[in-house]
């Protein structure tokens, strides 16, 4: 028995580009898997790959934590405070989204570099120097990834009904308690979605990282940097690194998806 079609056939003008789009996104990934030298994989998975992977995961996670700590309050400020010039601030926050990451790296160097506007004092007063360190990688990744979190959380906050916050106030809750117990739980899906985007962006960060933090194996050479460098010397190693990065990202996203995004809340 064939299922009866209520809405008629799908229009070709939509289906054809949709299928092309799907192919465009998936074929390169499939190609990567096809060309992977699976037999010599164990020999290529050197200690260096493990080192880069560990560094990538640690830095991306730290950057995400920084983004959560600074980005959620920033999103709250933009969505709830009634601050004058919020529209302009919101536009400024999104600049790192459209800025080429390399330019972001240069900007970070000019401000946080040892002779930078802020960096010279960090160096003189606290002996802290960020460029070309693991901390620098985290800073570069956070700089590039934070707008994703802020935009996602701010959108969720603006969609949330502020009358619940008023209800909490009439029950005696301070603004901070209201934020913790009422606002934050109600925007949690937005926070999680933002954090996932933010983490994924940080994990793939290349331009700002290599500009601001350089390329020191074990210290600042994250997976994307390792892939790029390996491509020049040892293409097979580059493929292996890429596949590992692909599997890790997909694995983490799939895990979070089951737990948070589509699962019953």
């Amino acid at each position: 028995m064939t299922r009866r079609q209520v809405r008629g056939r799908l229009p070709v003008v939509l289906v054809l580009p949709a299928v092309l789009g799907l192919a465009f996104l998936l074929v390169p990934l499939a190609g990567l898997l096809v060309r992977t030298p699976w037999t010599s994989l164990p020999t290529l998975l050197s200690a260096e790959v493990g080192e880069a992977l560990r560094l990538s995961l640690v830095c991306a996670s730290l950057a995400t934590i920084c983004c959560l700590a600074l980005g959620i309050p920033l999103a709250w400020l933009l969505a709830r405070s009634g601050l004058p010039g919020r529209g302009f601030l919101r536009a400024l926050v999104t600049v790192p989204l459209v800025l080429p990451p390399v330019v972001g790296g240069v900007a970070l160097l000019l401000v946080l570099g040892r002779k930078g506007l802020v960096g010279q004092y960090l160096d003189a007063w606290f002996g802290i120097s960020l460029p070309f360190t693991t901390a620098g990688v985290v800073v570069a990744e956070a700089f590039v990834a934070m707008p994703f979190l802020v935009i996602s959380v701010e959108g969720a906050l603006r969609a949330a009904d502020p009358r619940y916050e008023e209800a909490a106030a009439t029950l005696g809750a301070s603004r901070w308690l209201t934020f913790r117990r009422v606002t934050l739980p109600s925007v949690l899906p937005g926070v999680v979605a933002g954090a996932v985007l933010c983490w994924a962006r940080a994990l793939g960060e290349f331009g700002a990282t290599i500009t601001f933090a350089g390329n020191f194996p074990g210290e600042t050479t994250t997976m994307p940097l390792a892939v790029y460098l390996a491509l020049e010397s040892d293409p097979d190693a580059a493929i292996v690194l890429s596949v590992v990065l692909l599997l890790v990202s997909v694995g983490v996203l799939a895990g979070l998806r089951d737990r948070w995004i589509s699962g019953p809340s």
Binding site: D161, R163, Y164, E166, A167, A168, T170, L171, R181, V182, P185, S186
Partner: peptide
């Protein structure tokens, strides 16, 4: 104490 029109109970 306020009872709001659509109650505004905290969903979570």
């Amino acid at each position: 104490g306020v009872v709001f029109q659509d109650y505004l109970l905290f969903a979570h």
